[in-house]
Design a protein around this nucleic acid. Structure first.
Lengths: 238, 238
DNA sequence: CGCCGGTTTGATACTAATCAAGTTAAGTGG
DNA sequence: CCACTTAACTTGATTAGTATCAAACCGGCG
């Protein structure tokens, strides 16, 4: 048995996925953590899999261990918009799920650590620290949504694409050498377009433009290198 | 003394503003409500007043009693985007305010019921029902932000303006006769443009177009009449 | 090798921004 | 009450940016 789980003052990890669930495990005592671990299970999905639909609320929560999960909303005529991206170690699912939900899909291959709805909700009731963590996560998602509203409403296509690259570069712990960053895009061009409110063609053109401007180099389709992060930041319009 | 505050099972109201604070008063016992009332104070602001800046976090919470409050974010070069509108009886302010805030301004003349930060935070600690209400409000704001992301990213100018009118018609309890609605716009054309990610001219043109199409009539600058709500809904693209 | 999805590039169309008047509404002071 | 000022709004002409339509390219895989 791991030694550290007997002391709730030092970082503790979920037994099944060996990750410290952001906003979850950190608020749990060693005892609660053991209880939680008894219920959690590692699950894998492939890119494109639907984890929960707009009309099909999830029957469990989950933390993202690896990969990227996209939250999408659709208009009747098929137009769609990605309204959120979840990276490790974000928590998926919401307390008191309501009608106005989003469709949850794996944007890349993902590993999740599933937590049954009942188990988490029971712990929330008796653990105010955990409730606070979940509140903090909700507020952080709200901030992210509002930041993205500015991008959607007021930035040009070039700024949008640069902002997206910066988002990925800062959320996917890329290979780092000084100001240089190197990473794999977890999203297809079509998904990037749906995230930015653009078309695939425009996304492609703006990536090409960033390349010819020397801001990035496209090593392979999904493999991007940013020679100077500050130069990319300067393209984001804020 | 009001009779109903002695029974926490029936709707109770804040003593200073006589309104049932959504998500706040409803979760309080009569005793707590009295305590809260001792600290609250009614305050008024004029259209355009800044209630809290991006760098100036508010030292108190407040419920909107009357009027509309706008939450704005700005880019360095002056472009701005309204990322949220708060109507009565929304709660302004957030637990554990963080750096990534928005600027809070009165969009119209407003009345607020102020609640000192310390008082509310103290009550949240000892009242899980209140904490749940605040969580619910955060999740509702998140849903609204995500809905608006679809509007910003994927709707046409005409659909955006129609969606805005519908939002106002459904949040400002307009004069209602069957399918007919009549209301005052709480925002200037410039604010509407900042909310929709458009220019003032485009907003004006689309309003004119809705008028010539018979979807609305513009009784006066800010005074709008919608003869058939379902017709307006059909213009919203979803 | 040839197919196929994802991507890039090119030509053109169209939507909304920009630039520029003009109009209405609301004050303000004589 | 009216002339004057100013801000908010509307309308028009033109331009710029992005979407749309179309074709070519590329990499992976049977």
């Amino acid at each position: 048995m791991r030694k550290d789980i007997h002391n709730s003052n030092i970082p503790v990890r979920c037994m099944s996925c060996e990750i410290r669930h952001k906003g979850v495990c950190g608020a749990l005592s060693a005892e609660e953590l053991l209880m939680l671990s008894a219920h959690t299970r590692l699950v894998n999905y492939q890119s494109g899999d639907e984890l929960a639909g707009e009309k099909m609320p999830a029957e469990s929560y989950a933390t993202v261990i690896r990969g990227v999960v996209k939250l999408t909303k659709r208009l009747e005529d098929g137009r769609q918009q990605i309204v959120g991206l979840q990276f490790a170690p974000d928590l998926l699912g919401r307390l008191n799920a309501n009608e106005n939900a989003v469709s949850v899909e794996a944007a890349s291959d993902v590993n999740l650590c599933r937590i049954p709805k009942a188990a988490l909700e029971r712990m929330v009731k008796s653990n105010t620290a955990l409730a606070e963590r979940l509140m903090a996560q909700a507020l952080r998602e709200l901030d992210e949504a509002r930041d993205w509203m500015v991008t959607l409403g007021r930035k040009t296509a070039a700024e949008k694409v640069a902002s997206f690259l910066l988002l990925i570069a800062t959320h996917l712990d890329p290979e780092t050498v000084g100001e240089k960053r190197r990473f794999e895009l977890p999203l297809s061009r079509a998904d990037i377009a749906d995230f930015l409110g653009l078309t695939v063609e425009t996304v492609s053109r703006q990536l090409s433009k960033l390349r010819t401007d020397g801001v990035i180099s496209i090593v392979a389709n999904r493999h991007i290198e940013v020679p100077k992060l500050s130069k990319l930041k300067a393209c984001c319009g804020s």
